[in-house]
Amino acid sequence: MPPAAEAPRREPSAARLRNALSAALLALACLLAPCGALAAWAVYGLADTGRYVDTMAPLAADPGVRDAVAGAVGDEVLRKLDPGPARSTFEPFVREAVRSFTRTEAFATAWEAGNRAVHDAVLHALRDERAAPGPVTVDLAPVTARVKQRLVADHMPWAERIPVRHTEVAVVPAGEVAGLRQGYRVLAAAAFWLPPAAVVLAVAGIAVAVRRRRAVTATGLGIALGGGLLAVAVVIGRHLTLADLPERAHRPAAGAVYDALTATLRPASWLLLALGLAMALAAWLTGLRGRRTARHGSRAPRLRGTTAPPTAAPPRARV
């Protein structure tokens, strides 16, 4: 078969191959964009102690958080008392003292210090491979000591009998530390590699495409879809987190904590959505303008009532 007959067949097959490769690259880029945003939020947002403490500090004034802390600390204080009639008499005063303590500046200071201690302990367990296996714990002794001082100052009976011991409370069970450590390593690698990989794949997919403007439009729509799905995932995650709590009384506090921690993730999802839509709109407007320019350029301007000028006859040669 002559080469001229083979050329029309090779060109469509090459175009289809380029389009298929472009579609695969762009699909991966659009998939990695929200995943990279999620990993970066977890590693660079949650894993930063200063940002975490600054995020959690305003929750000291949240009513749900105050009630949850008051209940937990009150239960711990009453558990250390000797059982008997005095305990039942003393319990209302302990509960009221703890609730009053959560409305003071001292509680805000203790709340910030406790969150910093918890965050440092969790990060040490996740980052230090040489750390001994075991649960991640925090000490409630500083909070118990402040409550005891408040009761003694109010001249409550038996306040001096409250023991202040270094009580280690597990915030992460020992069986979950190894899995969380492995997950943190994966998230750290993903936060570092996924965002640049998404950009490189998007640029490569657009460059390979036969019709690059359409590729840019598809990329923008894919990024917008990923941002929308990330926003939906944040909402679903909140519902599932609160639904898994065994006690309904702790759900307001857990909801406040979840909203505070995901406060930077929601704008990231909306930013992806806006960026993708802007890319798609810009590509569509550019294509529309190009088609109008080509359409007007193909038409030669002609005035009404005029005819084309006659062509001049070539001069005759003189002999």
Rank of each mutant, 00 (worst) to 15 (best):
residue 4 A to L: 11
residue 5 A to K: 06
residue 5 A to C: 03
residue 10 R to Y: 00
residue 13 S to F: 03
residue 24 A to H: 08
residue 26 L to C: 08
residue 26 L to M: 10
residue 28 L to A: 14
residue 28 L to V: 14
residue 29 A to H: 04
residue 30 C to K: 01
residue 30 C to L: 05
residue 33 A to Y: 04
residue 36 G to W: 11
residue 36 G to A: 04
residue 37 A to C: 06
residue 39 A to L: 05
residue 42 A to H: 14
residue 46 L to E: 08
residue 48 D to V: 01
residue 49 T to M: 00
residue 53 V to E: 05
residue 54 D to K: 09
residue 54 D to H: 07
residue 55 T to H: 00
residue 55 T to M: 07
residue 57 A to T: 13
residue 59 L to S: 15
residue 60 A to Q: 08
residue 64 G to A: 10
residue 64 G to P: 11
residue 68 A to T: 13
residue 69 V to C: 08
residue 71 G to P: 03
residue 72 A to H: 14
residue 75 D to N: 06
residue 77 V to T: 05
residue 78 L to M: 07
residue 79 R to H: 08
residue 85 P to M: 09
residue 86 A to G: 09
residue 87 R to Q: 14
residue 92 P to Q: 12
residue 95 R to Q: 13
residue 97 A to V: 07
residue 99 R to G: 07
residue 99 R to H: 10
residue 99 R to N: 14
residue 100 S to I: 00
residue 101 F to G: 12
residue 106 A to N: 08
residue 107 F to V: 10
residue 110 A to M: 02
residue 110 A to N: 10
residue 110 A to S: 13
residue 112 E to R: 13
residue 113 A to R: 10
residue 114 G to N: 09
residue 114 G to R: 12
residue 114 G to C: 05
residue 115 N to Q: 15
residue 117 A to Y: 00
residue 117 A to L: 04
residue 127 R to K: 12
residue 133 P to S: 09
residue 135 P to F: 00
residue 136 V to N: 07
residue 138 V to K: 11
residue 141 A to P: 03
residue 144 T to S: 12
residue 145 A to W: 01
residue 145 A to I: 05
residue 149 Q to G: 04
residue 151 L to K: 06
residue 154 D to H: 07
residue 154 D to G: 01
residue 157 P to N: 11
residue 161 R to H: 05
residue 162 I to K: 00
residue 163 P to G: 04
residue 164 V to S: 02
residue 165 R to H: 09
residue 165 R to K: 05
residue 166 H to W: 01
residue 166 H to P: 04
residue 170 A to K: 01
residue 172 V to K: 03
residue 177 V to N: 03
residue 178 A to L: 05
residue 179 G to Q: 15
residue 185 R to S: 12
residue 185 R to A: 14
residue 186 V to T: 10
residue 189 A to V: 10
residue 189 A to T: 13
residue 189 A to Q: 11
residue 191 A to E: 06
residue 193 W to D: 04
residue 196 P to K: 13
residue 197 A to H: 00
residue 200 V to P: 00
residue 202 A to G: 10
residue 203 V to Q: 01
residue 206 I to C: 06
residue 211 R to F: 03
residue 214 R to N: 06
residue 214 R to E: 05
residue 219 T to P: 00
residue 221 L to R: 15
residue 222 G to L: 13
residue 222 G to V: 14
residue 224 A to L: 05
residue 226 G to F: 06
residue 228 G to I: 06
residue 233 A to D: 09
residue 235 V to W: 12
residue 237 G to L: 06
residue 238 R to V: 04
residue 238 R to T: 02
residue 242 L to M: 07
residue 243 A to C: 09
residue 245 L to V: 10
residue 246 P to Y: 13
residue 251 R to A: 08
residue 255 G to I: 02
residue 255 G to E: 03
residue 257 V to N: 01
residue 259 D to E: 10
residue 261 L to H: 13
residue 264 T to A: 11
residue 269 S to W: 10
residue 270 W to R: 09
residue 271 L to V: 06
residue 273 L to C: 12
residue 276 G to D: 12
residue 281 L to S: 15
residue 283 A to S: 12
residue 288 L to Y: 05
residue 291 R to M: 01
residue 291 R to L: 15
residue 294 A to H: 05
residue 298 S to N: 09
residue 299 R to N: 03
residue 299 R to I: 15
residue 303 L to M: 06
residue 303 L to W: 12
residue 303 L to N: 01
residue 304 R to I: 02
residue 304 R to N: 09
residue 308 A to I: 00
residue 310 P to W: 03
residue 315 P to I: 07
residue 316 R to S: 15
residue 318 R to F: 09
